[in-house]
């Protein structure tokens, strides 16, 4: 993997982020009404003093390009403005919330890929069999269920009928002073339902995709060769075939990341998971635009990073791509 390719990818990523910043800037200005009122987010209740200080800080009396410059140079210094509702800088707010979201999204991603690909591989052994049919039906159902509703149904199930998993929050109140190890276990315990809820949709898609790409690979000559030289069925499936069927799965995993964040937003709201999605929901209800825009910025940033990582792992998984730039 060449360093210059990585530099190029990162440079392009930065360009995309600049685009997101400019979009944020334009959205606030394009919204109906006085931008100072929009930024204050008090829906007409802001004092004249407050509006004046916002105009001063954001340079709202200056030409548009100067305003843009003030905004962009702020973002470069990690200054995304002040949340007037939470009365804290937006970056501080997001710093408190970003780790729970990353934990939830990554867990769901790993869970859905592992379980999904496993189901897909099993299904590919007998294309007309029971598992195969189950995978297709499950994939169609998984695609059609609203994720927030799945979450609510699981809450009903696990709160009243089978109370083995906590249905709300990330850490039990009584463990606030416990040692870090106990706390970590408790977080994992709380993570089960939200992560599983989020994983279900994508699990089904990976199963379907895994099945299709395995079927394609299993028909190729090198699989016949592997079988002919007496490799065990497990080795053929999981070692020879899966390695080659993995590339399309990787592509989709990269493309799905943005959708996963959208899904996390709903799941966090349902399970009261203290992440960025929950923050976005709270700040949208309060019309707290600096915070909303901050969340949009950081969520896009996560997608850009995920895309670069996917690209890199791609080159690692498929040596044929390494020479190209």
């Amino acid at each position: 993997m060449s360093a210059s390719y990585l530099m190029k990818r990162v440079g392009y990523g930065l360009l995309l982020m600049l685009g997101v910043v400019i979009l944020n800037f334009l959205l606030i200005r394009l919204a109906p009404g006085d931008p100072a009122v929009v930024i204050a987010g008090e829906m007409g209740g802001a004092t004249e003093e407050m509006l004046e200080s916002i105009r001063e800080e954001y340079g709202l009396n200056k030409p548009l390009l100067t305003q843009l410059w003030i905004y962009v140079s702020g973002v470069v210094r990690f200054d995304l403005g002040q949340s007037f509702f939470f009365n804290q800088p937006v970056t501080t707010l997001i710093a408190q919330r970003i780790l729970p979201t990353i934990l939830l999204v990554i867990t769901a991603q790993i869970l859905s890929i592992l379980l999904g690909v496993f189901l897909g591989v099993i299904a590919s052994r007998k294309p007309g069999g029971v598992v195969s049919a189950f995978v297709s039906v499950f994939a169609t159902i998984g695609y059609a269920v609203p994720v927030f509703w799945t979450g609510i149904m699981l809450i009903i199930l696990f709160a009243s009928i089978l109370p083995i998993f906590p249905v709300e929050g990330m850490l039990s109140v009584k463990l606030r002073d416990a040692n870090i190890f106990v706390q970590a276990l408790d977080v994992l315990h709380h993570l089960v339902l939200p992560a599983f809820t989020l994983a279900i949709i994508y699990l089904a898609q990976y199963a379907r995709l895994g099945r299709a790409s395995m079927l394609e690979v299993l028909g190729s000559d090198y699989i016949r060769t592997a079988r002919a030289k007496g490799a065990s069925e497990r080795s053929v499936l999981f070692k020879h075939a899966l390695r080659n069927a993995a590339l399309p799965i990787l592509t989709v995993a990269g493309l799905q990341f943005g959708n996963l964040i959208s899904g996390a937003l709903l799941v966090e709201t349902v399970f009261n998971w203290p992440g960025m999605g929950r923050l976005a929901f709270d700040s949208i209800l309060r019309r707290d635009y600096p915070t909303i825009m901050g969340v949009l910025f950081f969520a896009s940033f996560m997608v850009v990073v995920a895309n670069i990582l996917t690209d890199m792992s791609y080159r690692w998984a498929d040596p044929r791509l390494r020479g190209k730039s």
């Binding site: 997101v20 959205l27 937003l265 976005a280 949208i284 949009l296 969520a299 896009s300 997608v303 895309n307």
Partner: peptide
């Protein structure tokens, strides 16, 4: 790059 649901919410 923009997470669709979040962007739609905004």
């Amino acid at each position: 790059v923009l997470p669709a649901l979040l962007f739609a919410m905004v």
